[in-house]
């Protein structure tokens, strides 16, 4: 592995990891709202959360550019107030990746939440636990397998995010050129065949490792809960 692969691999791992960190708290909150709360427009909200699954990634990247670009309403405010620039940075790449994998994480957490026996929360209530206490002492530990499965899936998917990243964060070596972008660049250059093949193999092994890790993790958690 020479400099280009190592750099792309490291960048991919970093972007994917940061995207998961962005993702989790919001995904848990949204999944909780979608399973437990009753409010007007819930179905529309549900559809909105799932949009990145069906939209072309380039559309997500473009919308991010419009909103979070230096001249966009949110991006402009961030830049002027805190000096934070998202477009064309690795943090921006992580944001784009997070939004693309968001529905996957919400879905995984939501399925676990629906399987939580509400009777356990009632029991905790009769034992003196308030709503937040119940969530952190009962609900969250019980949905942990789902949260971790969602996180691992999002991480694995995040390693390969292409369209949204290249549109919003561009293809800057060492900053936003992740594995798939490096692979794309290698294919475009006349003598990049060998490099492209090596990058493809790295992606393949990463994906496989991620899926296996997720399965083992879920198994050991289920054992711990006695199921």
């Amino acid at each position: 592995m020479n400099g280009i692969e190592a750099e792309a691999l490291w960048l991919s791992l970093s972007v994917a990891a940061r995207s998961v960190v962005f993702n989790l708290p919001f995904a848990i909150l949204i999944a909780w709202l979608l399973t437990r709360a009753r409010f007007a427009g819930r179905t529309l909200f549900d559809a909105f959360v799932h949009l990145p699954l069906v939209l072309p990634p380039v559309v997500v990247g473009y919308l991010l550019l419009v909103l979070f670009g230096v001249r966009g309403p949110i991006g402009g405010w961030l830049y002027e107030t805190f000096g934070i620039r998202l477009a064309f940075t690795s943090t921006g790449a992580a944001l784009a990746t997070a939004i693309m994998s968001f529905p996957l994480v919400v879905r995984a957490i939501r399925i676990s939440l629906e399987n939580v026996d509400r009777g356990l929360e009632d029991a905790a209530r009769t034992l003196g636990a308030g709503p937040f206490d119940r969530f952190f002492s009962i609900t969250l530990p019980l949905i942990l397998p789902g949260v971790l499965a969602g996180a691992v899936t999002a991480f694995a998917a995040g390693l390969g995010e292409f369209g949204a990243v290249i549109t919003f964060a561009s293809n800057i070596p060492g900053e936003t050129r992740t594995l798939p972008l490096a692979l794309y660049t290698a294919i475009q250059s006349p003598d990049g065949d060998a490099l492209a093949m090596r990058l493809a193999l790295i992606s393949l092994s990463l994906g496989l490792a991620g899926l296996l890790a997720s399965e083992f993790l879920a198994r050991s958690l289920r054992r711990r809960l006695g199921r």
């Binding site: 026996d117 009777g119 356990l120 029991a123 009769t126 009962i138 019980l142 809960l225 199921r227």
Partner: peptide
């Protein structure tokens, strides 16, 4: 309260 299905916390 003791429920019919005991409702012990599995974790």
């Amino acid at each position: 309260v003791v429920f019919q299905d005991s409702r012990l916390f599995p974790h």
